[in-house]
């Protein structure tokens, strides 16, 4: 662990603003990684149910979030 990270950690423990910003950035990061991984899994032929099980969410939830763009028929 570098000194820079240690120093930054100590600083963040004193400043909730930095910690909260980090939480927000992590959510954004997790969202983007989820998009990439779900698209990758679909390309490899995973079913929505398999993806949902791996993510620990319902099939409906994962399909609602990631399935919309693939069906032209659902567009208005």
């Amino acid at each position: 662990m570098s000194d820079g990270v240690t120093l930054a950690r100590e600083a963040s423990s004193r400043d909730p603003a930095v910690g909260l910003r980090a939480v927000r950035a992590l959510r954004e990061l997790a969202d983007r990684l989820e998009n990439l991984q779900v698209a990758g899994a679909r390309e490899r032929g995973w079913t929505w149910q398999e993806i949902a099980d791996a993510l620990g969410v319902s099939r409906q939830a994962v399909h609602k979030k990631h399935g919309g763009g693939r069906r032209l028929g659902r567009e208005k």
């Binding site: 662990m1 963040s12 930095v18 910690g19 980090a22």
Partner: peptide, 8 residues
């Protein structure tokens, strides 16, 4: 920067 502060 914020991510670095929590070690990411």
């Amino acid at each position: 920067e914020a991510l670095r502060a929590i070690g990411v």
